Simulated assay, not measured.
Amino acid sequence: MPYSGIVKYHVKLSFDVDGLVEKADIIGAIFGQTEGLLGPEMNLNELQKVSKVGRIEVNTTTTTNQTKGDALIPMSTDINTAALIAAAIESIDKVGPFQAAFKLEAIEDVRSAKKKEIVDRAREIVQKWSTKTISEGDEMLKDVSEVTSTGKLTTFGKEKLACGSGVFDSPWIILVEGRADVINLLRAGFDNALAIEGAKIDESIKSLCESKSKVVAFLDGDRAGGFILKELKSMVRIDVVHRAPEDVEVEELTPMQIVEILKDTAEDMKKETTKPRLQDPKDEPIANVAKKVYPDLNESLEAVALDEELNEVFKVPVSEVVGKLSPGSGIKYLVLDGIITQRLIDSAKQAGIECVIGHRMANLKSADGLTLKTFTELGIA
């Protein structure tokens, strides 16, 4: 019968029979010759019925007049019962008409083997998990490092003034008193701080500030900070002034306090830097033309044609503009709330138009000498 119990022990025996027998003969001898030896409660047939003994597996090898092999009996009894049954099987001296000898080789604790498998598997899981955790930890450290290393401490000018590496490229600058202040602002995520290093303002600072769109003074909240502020204002243009709380130095502030103090200025600068800018100063005359019509033209899906005096020649839907273009119309500028296409360029050239302005350009083969501009390039949108 199929075995459905939980195996605790494997009883392993070897046997030697002085004759040729089959596996069924070995199994029959095990059941038949142990029956009644240990009482009805230890009868193998009865133990199988209650799933205490599993299916007996037998392997045999035969020679001319001898059969040898081994038997494995899975058992879910206690160890004492398993030992008694093993001893009973060892008492078998015949298989059929032939002399036989059975010998116990081992009683294996299956649970111990399972425990070893569990421990080995647990070690494997721990090893994989540790590797994964270390890898994830490295990634987390890398992410944090990237955030905290957006700027580095460096120097500026002949005087080697301490500053953040963003001072050179940032559109705005934060003037602080000393090196420790620069380091503290770096911790807070601001890499555009420059230390003035004392009350006397270096000339190189003045030149740098002139190149920035906004100059911020962030000074200590003590009396000395007030004196330095006066000196700064006499030397450079100061757009915004921030002070640490009274009697507190900037280097003593926490990163969170620094962010809180500078957040409004930082937000204003973020908005300013995202505003459209005229990309080429030479295009300013064209930009002025576009600015004149853009407010009424934007999101209208229309096109407006202007002559040299900026008088309106016509205003039509973009879908009709090509049909309106003709030679000798006196159009100099064509401004449209749409895409500049090759078909439009070809028609504009035939009409003698000099400049076409739109939101963006399609994949163009040739501009044919026309001036083509987008509202973004002109700093309008």
Rank of each mutant, 00 (worst) to 15 (best):
G379Y: 00
E246W: 04
S207H: 04
E124L: 02
L262A: 11
C209D: 01
V176P: 10
A266F: 13
D346M: 09
E35G: 03
V236M: 07
D70V: 01
S170A: 14
M42D: 06
D169S: 14
T371I: 05
N65F: 14
D202Y: 10
L72D: 06
E139F: 13
L153E: 09
T62C: 05
A106F: 04
D239F: 08
K233H: 02
L334W: 07
H242Q: 05
G225F: 09
K373T: 15
K8A: 09
G330S: 11
E299M: 15
G369D: 08
I331Q: 14
S149Q: 13
Y333N: 03
L38N: 11
R123S: 00
F168M: 09
R237W: 00
V289K: 06
A83R: 14
E246Y: 02
R237V: 00
T148P: 01
E354Q: 09
Q257V: 00
K349Y: 00
L20W: 00
M269R: 10
E302H: 08
G338A: 03
R111T: 15
D222F: 10
T64D: 13
I30Q: 00
K142A: 12
G352Y: 04
C163A: 03
E108T: 15
A367Q: 15
V321D: 03
G32I: 03
I380T: 01
L262I: 03
N43F: 09
G221H: 15
P255F: 03
M1H: 01
I6G: 07
M42L: 15
I201L: 06
V240C: 11
V318C: 10
K12S: 15
P281M: 01
V241C: 04
V215N: 04
Y3D: 08
V50G: 02
F31L: 13
D307N: 04
A244R: 12
L20M: 05
D169E: 14
Q33C: 08
S51W: 07
M140A: 13
D222P: 11
T131L: 09
E22S: 08
P255S: 05
T371G: 07
K332C: 02
V322A: 13
K68P: 10
V240L: 10
R123T: 00
A83S: 14
G328F: 09
I73L: 05
S211F: 01
N59T: 10
L262S: 05
T371S: 14
A287M: 11
T371P: 04
G358C: 04
L208F: 03
S170D: 14
K116R: 15
A290D: 13
K158T: 12
A82Y: 13
D25I: 06
T265Q: 06
D296S: 04
K349W: 00
I258V: 14
V182I: 08
I174W: 06
L104G: 02
K315E: 08
N363M: 12
K103N: 07
T60L: 08
K142Q: 09
E22I: 00
S319Q: 15
I92R: 01
L232Q: 02
N363V: 13
V335F: 03
E139K: 15
T341N: 03
